[in-house]
């Protein structure tokens, strides 16, 4: 496959960014989207140019690290997957693909397509609670949690905090992330649960400026 890529390049948070157009040739339809970007980066390095910075980690669809707003959609045109699980067979030969970073006040751009998602950690820290025992292994029954609550909490914990909800929402709202984390934490012993939820939301308002509205 031969493709034209319009990729957002930005030196750092403060710099003015712009789209730069790249051509990639002979891409296998079976390669993943990130592999396609790897191939492009190799070409750039060979030409002594700076490679494109983009986030990725496990490349197994579970860590939530990869981002990318591809042709107007978070994680690209496929349904219910992260960008690392997107394959080039979803595109056609000769396509023009526009690749942008997550855009939100709460996610400042670090470089090119990488954004800083500390805001999510800050929200969790403001409301979440864990015991860190530095001694031996704690007794498994010291804080009993019902099977039902544990299952529901795990369901909510399926949110891997990738930021696609913020990237997609027209108001750049973190409401989906916060609601998943509130459910996840509130079902487990947290001490003052209500106070924690309010602090989650207050933190979200500070980080993202808005709630899901309209």
């Amino acid at each position: 496959m031969n493709l034209t890529l319009k990729i957002w390049r930005q030196e750092n948070e403060k710099a003015q960014g712009k789209f730069v157009t790249y051509e990639v040739k002979d891409i296998s339809p079976d390669s993943s989207f990130l592999e396609m970007l790897d191939i492009l980066n190799e070409q750039l390095v060979n030409k002594i140019q700076l490679p494109i910075a983009f986030d990725h980690d496990c490349r197994e669809g579970i860590c939530g690290m990869c981002s990318l707003y591809i042709n107007g959609r978070a994680h690209g045109p496929d349904e219910g997957i992260t960008t690392c699980q997107l394959h080039m067979r979803k595109f056609s030969d000769g396509d023009i693909i526009t690749i942008e970073p997550w855009r939100s006040r709460g996610f400042p751009i670090i470089k090119d397509l990488m954004v800083n998602r500390d805001a999510f950690d800050n929200i969790m820290q403001s409301g979440g609670y864990i015991s860190v025992n530095t001694g031996g292994i704690p007794d498994a029954n010291s804080i009993p949690i019902s099977k039902e609550n544990s299952d529901l909490s795990m369901d909510a914990a399926a949110c891997i905090g990738c930021g696609a909800c913020v990237a997609t929402c027209k108001n750049s709202s973190a409401m989906l992330f916060v609601s998943a984390k509130v459910s996840q934490f509130a079902l487990l012993p947290q001490g003052r649960t209500e106070a924690k939820i309010i602090s989650n939301i207050a933190r979200m308002n500070r980080e993202f400026l808005c709630a899901n509205f309209s």
Binding site: G17, N71, G72, T98, E100, R105, G106, K170, C210, F213
Partner: peptide, 29 residues
């Protein structure tokens, strides 16, 4: 809220395709 929402995304996307995730009416309330 609309003014707040606009501030929440200072730089707009160049390409936006939200046809599958939301209705036109919801985006233009």
């Amino acid at each position: 809220l609309t003014l707040q929402n606009q501030k929440a995304r200072p730089e707009a996307y160049a390409v936006v395709d939200q046809s599958e995730s939301s209705s036109w009416a919801s985006r233009n309330m």
